[in-house]
Design a binder for these strands. Structure first.
Lengths: 386, 386
DNA sequence: ATGAAAGCGCTAACAC
DNA sequence: GTGTTAGCGCTTTCAT
């Protein structure tokens, strides 16, 4: 027995006394005589036959696997996304591969490149930083990619973003409205897209509220619980009466450090986070946070991806690079280092395939933020609540 | 162009003017003339060639993918396991597929069966309940499986367990030692293995400490934060001075409910959890918990699995019968259809195929629990700490 | 309706 | 050292 002992269509064909073609047809629900159908089904059942997914993939050019690559699988926000994505892809009959990049750009690029080995049919990527290398890699991706996050204009890739500038502003205005005047900000790394946007929202809201921007009230650190705890300690000397954190993990860490110092939340300081992840409800006191629509974005990203896959020219792979010539002034995707006019040779290099598959312009959808108020930002003065 | 425009060994062969066999050899680091090597490498680079993993898998009989199926990807304990497993499998060159079963037995069985479609080479499974169906499926699994959790004796499967009976007892004794006398217990479902074991440990420790078992102090619920909150409410009338919870999620929920009622932790009640997951440190007050060695177990499980995979007959597929004759005194791996007295005819009837693959006897390793004391269980009376 | 045969992209014998 | 060839298990023409 050549393989691992698993039955194949050949075993079934022998047992049922038909050809492998008939087996395939019956098993794929195509027409066949009653008798044949019967025998094949029986043989398959008796043998406990399960089709070999690898062989199918090789033949069909699709693995029916999708990849979701996120910065940190330990962050509940991404877990929420996983759940939402899973729901959509599972319904469509795709398996989901999860990949935690630890926010390492190199790892993100590797994932992008890995599309080339045809292990998965498509990719949903949550990059934390967007470098030129990312943009280049995105353009050359060997299959459809959807980015969750903000991409520079003109990058021809589907994306789903959250308006985190507005989201951050929402939180800050809320703090101001509840009487806080010295609003500190614990941000993630400032060289990340979320980091930049949240800072922008913070400053904008400050300005709107007529509050000055005080560098001493702002800290940058890594995203993460411990980081939040350490960062808020550094801000305490500036005597804030509220701390706005760029995500829930930071906010939880900050709360922790504050409480450990004997400070009271919200009486002494209010604390607010972002993402409205599970952590917000689990924290003590429950954390005011800004819902950035994580599940929604996950779901939407999955839908976009499936659309590329099954939608128009649902061929084996989406057209690589060359297709995107739509953008005026777009540079060539890849220079086929060799004879220029050598038609047959460089076909592989990414020359436009004969088929006029329309690249379908990239689509972007944006989720709108929503403030979720909880105990951590109750007004300092005796709350008039009932 | 038949495929997605991706270069194949054929494209390379043409471009380099050699045969596909040479391409394969060069690319796989086998000997070849300087000149040939050079040309192939160059062609591959120019074309941006990446080998098609699917084709490789079909040929080799291995996908180099492993599956980890756990009850809930939202539980930090499993995230810790994922990290540990990932570390091991990645180093060995395997991709990891994650699967969240939501503790649905049916889903666990499906995962087991899915080994048959050859999508992954092996499986690490964390079942929450073990039914007869599980045991049967485990025996018939089409590839190596390692179970994280306690299996009944005699099930021929590798497993890694935690001594959660001892772990639970540890926590209860600690509560007793710090002056608590009415120790409530919020458990998970009693028909799960962890649920049963933790209850056993609770009762055992109670007895050791000379404390009576009071049903009014015990609640069963689902594992989960909300469940913990609701459950502890029901126990309050019994006036506990401590609450021991079967995992950190429950404990966090319980703390939450207690604090929300204006009770103080640990002054009014002590709270302890299990698993020592991230949640324990993130909770307020920081949660005393029992480290059940999640990372350790994950790592160990991955090692066991890899051992099965690469260890003995690391051939293409598990072991085509004839091979394993090596082990002295080993039982026959699989009855080669029609061989010795081993019931041959039943291949048809769907009965267990020859023998449940048992090349090497199942191995089991056990992680030992360790108590991690934090603020949530400080003695009620003024702590003599320094 | 069914069977024979041609591959999908790759590796590994087996000749030269 | 290199090329030719035979599959891995499956789907799909193309004849019959």
């Amino acid at each position: 027995m050549p393989n691992g002992g698993q039955p194949t269509i050949v075993s079934i064909a022998e047992r049922a006394g038909v050809s492998i073609a008939s087996v395939s047809r019956v098993l794929n629900g195509q027409g066949a005589r009653r008798d044949t159908t019967e025998r094949v089904r029986r043989a398959a059942a008796e043998l406990g036959y399960v089709p070999n997914a690898v062989a199918r993939s090789l033949k069909g050019g699709r693995t029916r696997q999708l990849t979701f690559a996120m910065p940190d699988i330990g962050n509940p926000v991404y877990v929420a996304m996983v759940r939402a994505i899973q729901e959509v892809t599972k319904a469509a009959g795709y398996r989901l591969l999860l990949h935690s990049t630890d926010a390492v750009a190199e790892d993100e690029l590797a994932v992008l490149r890995s599309l080339q080995d045809r292990t998965s049919d498509g990719l949903i990527l949550v990059p934390i930083r967007i470098t030129d290398a990312h943009i280049a890699a995105l353009g050359e991706a060997a299959g459809p990619v959807v980015v969750i996050g903000s991409l520079p204009d003109g990058v021809p890739v589907d994306s789903v973003r959250a308006d985190s500038v507005a989201g951050a502003a929402l939180a800050v205005r809320h703090l101001h409205a509840t009487g806080r005047r010295r609003i500190a900000f614990v941000n993630g790394p400032s060289d990340t897209v979320p980091g930049r946007n949240r800072e922008l929202g913070y400053r904008r809201a400050l300005a709107e509220c007529g509050l000055p921007y005080e560098p001493a009230l702002v800290a940058h650190t890594d995203f993460g619980v411990d980081a939040g705890a350490r960062a808020v300690e550094r801000l305490l000397p500036a005597r804030p009466d509220a701390v706005f954190c760029a995500n829930d993990q930071l906010a939880l860490g900050a709360s922790h450090a504050l409480l450990a110092r004997g400070l009271r939340i919200p009486d002494d300081l209010a604390v607010a986070g972002m993402d409205d992840s599970e952590l917000a409800q689990v924290g003590w006191p429950p954390l005011t946070s800004v819902d950035l629509g994580s599940s929604e974005r996950g779901r939407r990203a999955a839908e976009l991806l499936l659309d590329r896959l099954e939608g128009p020219g649902s061929g084996p792979a989406a057209g690589p690079g060359a297709a995107h010539a739509a953008e005026p002034g777009a540079e060539p995707t890849r220079a086929p280092t060799g004879a220029a006019g050598d038609a047959p040779a460089d076909r592989a290099g990414g020359g436009a395939p004969a088929g006029p598959r329309s690249p379908a312009p990239p689509r972007t959808s944006t989720a709108h933020p929503r403030l979720v108020v909880r105990a951590s930002t109750a007004p300092a003065t005796d709350p008039p609540t009932r």
